[in-house]
Design a protein around this nucleic acid. Structure first.
Lengths: 141, 141
DNA sequence: ACGAATATATCTTATAATACGACATTAATT
DNA sequence: AATTAATGTCGTATTATAAGATATATTCGT
């Protein structure tokens, strides 16, 4: 493995460790992964969840039941196929997922607006934008 | 909240979602958080774990027992204070944590070395390096 | 129109994870 | 020697996780 790759991963995990949210609510690993899929993909139903986290469809259904009890997720039905569930995050669910996968906004603002010049800030934004664009080229056809 | 902050978080989570490892072993949320602390901090013992994940010391001790059974973690004792445990990740533990918090090395290599020029690659590396440096200035004295 | 296939839901059962209080042990401190 | 600090263990309770069996509703194929 090239050493730049290892280096970037080191930087990535260091940045996340320092800038993540703390004092987060209790939540399970599966719940986070499920909510990530719902947020990042379109038209996600029970079957897609089961595939994404590698469990049976009935287990996936139980997960969703629990997430609905916590009001992190709600269901609607596809208009094209009334058998199919379409899952979405509630506002609360979105906030919870944010606190478990995003960078702390206050810390990020402090870093970008008080510890960096506008040129440095632009460098960060350009790099992330480039990376996301190229990633999309690779993984979404 | 400034819109650049929200934008960067959007990019951050998109990049992670696309580049993360898939088909990961079953692991609990608490296990990952504990291993992150062990990897990123020095001289972590039971007390530090308890504080980091906000549980009692006996619960933290049980977590460590389970992680040792799985051979993700091992203990030694501080030479300065023989009461104090010092936790470290085993090689296996390091790999497991990697698969649950880092970017997939194959995907990253493909992205950086086949989809980017060396200038673009350098931009990414510079941006991450800058970000990590400044983060360290802020959060480590 | 009708049986087959698909998507989801529910119920039961089993195991593992999570957490805490109470109590015990060992090493350091005073 | 008594106290404090760091950790470990036991008992107990709750929740999470997962699968199989079974059921229901919708759509597809002919």
């Amino acid at each position: 493995m090239k050493k730049e790759i290892v280096k970037i991963n080191q930087l990535w995990t260091d940045i996340y460790y320092q800038l993540r949210y703390t004092h987060q609510e209790k939540i399970t690993h599966q719940s986070i992964r499920i909510m990530q899929v719902i947020e990042k993909e379109n038209e996600v139903g029970i079957k897609e969840i089961a595939k994404a986290i590698q469990v049976s469809h009935n287990t996936a259904s139980e997960h969703i039941k629990r997430l609905m009890e916590k009001e992190y997720v709600f269901k609607s039905r596809s208009s094209k196929d009334e058998r199919k569930v379409i899952l979405r995050l509630t506002e609360l669910g979105g906030e919870v997922l944010h606190r478990h996968s995003s960078l702390n906004e206050e810390k990020l603002e402090h870093l970008l607006y008080e510890k960096m010049s506008s040129e440095e800030r632009q460098l960060i934004l350009d790099a992330f934008t480039l990376m996301r664009e190229r990633v999309n080229d690779v993984y979404n056809r």
